[in-house]
């Protein structure tokens, strides 16, 4: 059986487009699932603060805070379309104050950033924010 030339070309183009040059939503989802385990992940409590329009992906200011009376055990940040999905994990010790951290991150392209918080009572909360990056962090 001969495969039409057009089909071959389309398949080749697809392979190039789909090659995993960046992390994917499924990769991030798997990481979050591993983190959350059996607990249910709910939206809320966590607040991600990043500019919606990022002018320079090399240094994007990001602030993550968690509300509520419960102590926060850990806080995890993921970027869905960076080459590597992890951004940072924060673990709060007995001396920690309110769970609010700021740092600066790299963003390879326009994408969704996800933050997941694990509280001391075992519950898990998340927030996600979709943003546009005009100048990407240099990967080349």
């Amino acid at each position: 059986m001969t495969v039409p030339r057009r089909q071959v070309l389309v398949a080749a183009a697809g392979a190039v487009l789909l090659s995993p040059a960046s992390a994917t939503e499924t990769q991030v989802a798997a990481l979050i699932k591993e983190l959350v385990g059996d607990a249910t992940l709910r939206e809320g409590r966590v607040k991600l603060d990043i500019p919606l329009l990022v002018e320079n992906g090399n240094a994007v200011p990001i602030t993550v805070s968690v509300d509520g009376p419960n102590r926060v055990r850990s806080l995890h940040v993921f970027a869905e379309r960076n080459p590597l999905p992890n951004v940072a994990n924060f673990y709060f010790g007995p001396r920690a104050g309110p769970a609010k951290v700021s740092t600066r991150m790299r963003l390879a392209t326009s994408q969704t950033v996800v933050a997941v918080a694990k509280l001391a009572d075992g519950s898990c909360w998340m927030d996600r924010i979709e943003l546009i990056v005009t100048l990407a962090a240099c990967v080349e």
Binding site: A79, N86, A88, N89, K100, S102
Partner: peptide, 26 residues
């Protein structure tokens, strides 16, 4: 703080050059 942990962070390559961190302690 006097040996008691305030915060520990795992950093990944997605953290920008000249890393900046801000956090709170009691």
């Amino acid at each position: 703080w006097n040996g008691d942990e305030v915060l520990s962070v795992d950093l990944f390559p997605a953290i920008a050059a000249n890393p900046f961190l801000s956090f709170f302690a009691v």
